[in-house]
Computed example of a mutant assay.
Amino acid sequence: MEKAVCNHGFFMMAPNVWDPKSKSLTRPLTLSNSSSVSVTISHPRTLSFLVIQVHGINNVSRVDEELILQQVGRMLRISAEDDRDVTEFQQLHEDAKKYGFGRIFRSPFLFEDMVKSILLSNITWERTLGMASSLCILQSKLADGTVSSQTNKKRKRVVKARKETSGNFPSAKEIASLDKELINEHCKLGYRANWIVKLAKMVESGKLNLEEMESRDMKAEEVSEKLKKLKGFGPFLTATVLMCIGYYHLVPSDTETLRLFREQYLKYNDIIIVLLILPLRLTHEDNDESRQPSCGTGTNGYEDDRQSM
């Protein structure tokens, strides 16, 4: 299970909590009434199946049980289609089969993957982790009524100080009910807040059908064109989301990708690495996100380091 989870940075982003000692993943999942429940997923060596522990609920309904299984299945890519992809990949790369690699971790829902991809835009990895955590804290406040889209900004609410707790990752419905100013007040996402709110409203209005995009009935090129029409989705974000859906023909390359290539391969074969890096550099420089103004020079007052994860 560790190889199916700890294979790229999304597993480190809230609300995911990976325990390296028990090799288990804990996070909230969504129930049929839109509330959340904390679950822990593990794969004991003595068992041939996953163990899913549901916390805080004595009896889980059949409907909720099915929803939990669907979300776990999506995160760990447990399906006949995913098995076929892994088999084909491991046939091409013997080392992948030898070390049990081939599944790329993702979120319970595509919307979360898309928002987390946006959080990677022109920012340090530390700030990305902080923004994801802030969004989960905001979701907790939305769930308990501490924060509401109907809050009158002209009147200061007196709220007793309490320890901030992390909730689930906010859904498209929750984000669509908010404005970018409120999100930035709590999460400091900068220009990303505008992108995320617009994305959520498109999903909620039906203008963007995520289920259709993820059904794999659409060709990769069609999905790619839909993504590129979204605010902020240049080559890097598009490739990242395509990877989460299950299309692997584009490599999500950023400045960190270039750094790793230089460190690992440049000293061995300068000619080969130039051929590898040049397309990545062109993609990065042509990325819509890379042309966004730094928040430090804009009107929202948030300073962004122009680096990627």
Rank of each mutant, 00 (worst) to 15 (best):
E2K: 13
P15A: 11
P20E: 15
K21W: 00
S22Q: 15
S22R: 11
S24Y: 05
L25E: 03
P28E: 07
T30P: 00
L31Q: 04
S34L: 05
S35N: 12
V37Q: 01
S38A: 09
T40W: 01
S42V: 08
S42E: 12
R45L: 14
F49I: 08
V54A: 11
N59A: 07
V60I: 15
V63S: 10
V63G: 02
E66C: 09
L69I: 13
V72H: 01
S79A: 06
S79P: 00
D82Y: 04
T87F: 15
Q91C: 10
L92E: 13
H93G: 01
A96N: 02
F101Q: 11
S107C: 07
L110N: 02
L110P: 00
D113C: 07
N122P: 05
T124N: 05
A132R: 02
L135Y: 00
Q139C: 08
K141D: 07
V147G: 02
S148K: 05
Q150V: 09
Q150M: 08
K153A: 14
R162T: 14
R162P: 00
T165P: 00
N168L: 10
S171A: 09
E174F: 06
A176N: 09
A176W: 05
A176P: 03
S177G: 04
S177A: 15
S177E: 12
D179H: 10
L182H: 02
H186E: 14
A193Y: 04
I196C: 03
V197M: 08
K198V: 07
G206N: 05
E212M: 10
E212P: 00
R216L: 15
D217I: 15
M218G: 01
M218P: 00
E222Q: 15
L227F: 07
K229H: 09
G232S: 13
A239Q: 03
L242T: 03
Y247D: 06
Y247V: 09
Y248R: 13
L258F: 06
L260R: 10
F261N: 03
R262H: 13
Q264H: 11
N269C: 15
D270V: 13
L275Y: 07
P279Y: 06
L280C: 12
T283H: 03
H284M: 14
D286Y: 03
D286F: 02
E289I: 14
T297H: 11
R306W: 05
